[in-house]
Design a protein around this nucleic acid. Structure first.
Ligand code: ZN
Ligand code: ZN
Ligand code: ZN
Ligand code: ZN
Lengths: 154, 154
DNA sequence: TTCCTAAATGATACACTATCTCATATGTCA
DNA sequence: TGACATATGAGATAGTGTATCATTTAGGAA
């Protein structure tokens, strides 16, 4: 773990605590466990993956609580939800991830990731004119990956 | 129903038949029913909504078949999947809806829609080089809408 | 510290979406 | 028409996420 990473995690933790305090909510056992697991997660993860991980590690937290805390973290701005359009809810932390986009195979659901390009900014003027404060964006391609094409002889 | 609409549906049907023929698949009863229902749908719809509709109308098609045909239509390019990040799979037909993207407010979850721009194609070469067969894409912006900014004094 | 109260939690059941299996039906082509 | 591959339906099943509610716990007051 690099120093930068640790420092960023502390900042995220502070952000989370600030949010909880401001909202009159408690710094509970479950929230600390889930926050910790989220920070250890690499790349994107689904609620279910995180919940399963907690259960497998025998952490003292239940599945409903994992889901509840994920929504807390979402509101606190610690994680964001990526809109993949499949039946799972995907999240990733906000710190330490370079902006990137996703292409997902509709057959096997695997992802290809690719860095974002500034051409995306072509949409900014329109949104700003509407008074929309842009926090981020994601491009999502869907299609069929090479493997699945080979498999199905398309 | 306008004449243009009817004509476009015929074109979509032709596209679907072309796809089926080319892929060595059959023009079956179920595929015709589901195609018809999809063309009657307005705006975005989920697989389950369409399936439920078919069952309620007592059409001679089962739920698994509705799902199967939706994937056919997706690959044929008759419908596209929109990535809303909730737990349902959303679709919309390609004809008569201009390709558009969404900006969603993280506070109130409302959408702003805006037309897509060909600058998005900057990502095509990279994906094609990987053998990824692109069926569609969506840009998803997230941020805070004007109303919510006013409300929260951001 | 101890007590009090509201918030948080866990166990469990549940709702819902989507998919799998496999026996049967159906369309294509010879 | 007969043969064969594809498509389908019924039902079971997997998987994700939520509701309920009795119990526990955090955090402030005394
Ligand atoms: Zn990612
Ligand atoms: Zn694939
Ligand atoms: Zn808003
Ligand atoms: Zn739309």
């Amino acid at each position: 773990m690099s120093k930068v990473n640790t420092q960023m995690i502390d900042e995220e933790r502070a952000k989370f605590l600030r949010y909880l305090t401001k909202a009159g909510r408690r710094v509970s056992h479950g929230r600390e466990i889930v926050f910790d697991q989220v920070m250890r997660a690499h790349g994107h993860f689904t609620a279910e993956e995180l919940a399963r991980g907690c259960l497998e590690k025998k952490l003292k937290v239940s599945r409903p609580t994992v889901y509840r805390v994920l929504y807390d973290l979402l509101e606190a701005g610690v994680i964001r939800e990526t809109a993949f359009g499949d039946k799972h809810r995907h999240f990733e932390h906000v710190y330490d991830e370079k902006p990137h986009h996703h292409a997902q195979c509709i057959r096997c659901h695997r992802f290809i990731e690719f860095p974002d390009r500034k051409e995306d900014e072509v949409y900014h003027p329109y949104l700003e004119k509407q008074g929309f404060k842009i926090l981020g964006h994601e491009m999502h391609f869907y299609g069929v990956c090479r493997k699945c094409q080979d498999k199905e002889g398309l």
